[in-house]
Amino acid sequence: MNNLELQALRYLFFLSVKESATWIAGDSDTETWSQWESGEKEIPEDIIVKMEALRLIRKERIAAIVHKINDRIGNNTMRYFTSFEDFLQVYPGGDFLQWKLYQSAAAELFSRNLERLC
Rank of each mutant, 00 (worst) to 15 (best):
L97P: 04
E31R: 13
M51H: 04
K68I: 01
C118E: 09
N113Y: 12
F87N: 05
L109D: 14
N76M: 13
I43W: 00
I43E: 14
E19N: 04
I24H: 01
E85V: 06
Q7F: 10
P44Y: 13
I47H: 03
E85Q: 07
W23H: 10
A53E: 05
E85C: 08
N113Q: 06
L12M: 08
I73V: 14
L54A: 09
W36H: 07
F96P: 04
T30E: 12
C118Q: 02
A63F: 08
A107S: 13
M51T: 09
N113T: 01
T22A: 13
C118I: 00
P92N: 04
G26Y: 01
G26H: 00
R116G: 00
L54C: 05
N70H: 14
W23N: 08
K18A: 15
G93H: 03
E115L: 15
S16K: 13
G39N: 04
E42L: 14
E108V: 09
A64G: 09
N3C: 06
M1P: 03
F96V: 04
E115C: 15
L109R: 05
W36V: 02
K18G: 10
L117A: 05
I73N: 12
I65M: 11
L9T: 11
M51K: 10
Q35I: 00
W36P: 07
E40K: 13
N70D: 14
E31H: 10
I47Q: 05
P92C: 05
I65R: 11
E108Y: 03
N3A: 06
N70I: 07
E40D: 12
N70F: 07
G26K: 00
R116W: 01
R55E: 04
I43P: 09
R10V: 10
S104N: 06
D71Y: 02
V49E: 07
Q98I: 14
T22I: 09
R79S: 11
N3E: 06
P44C: 09
N76V: 08
Q7H: 10
P92T: 03
M78W: 00
D46G: 06
E115V: 14
Y102F: 15
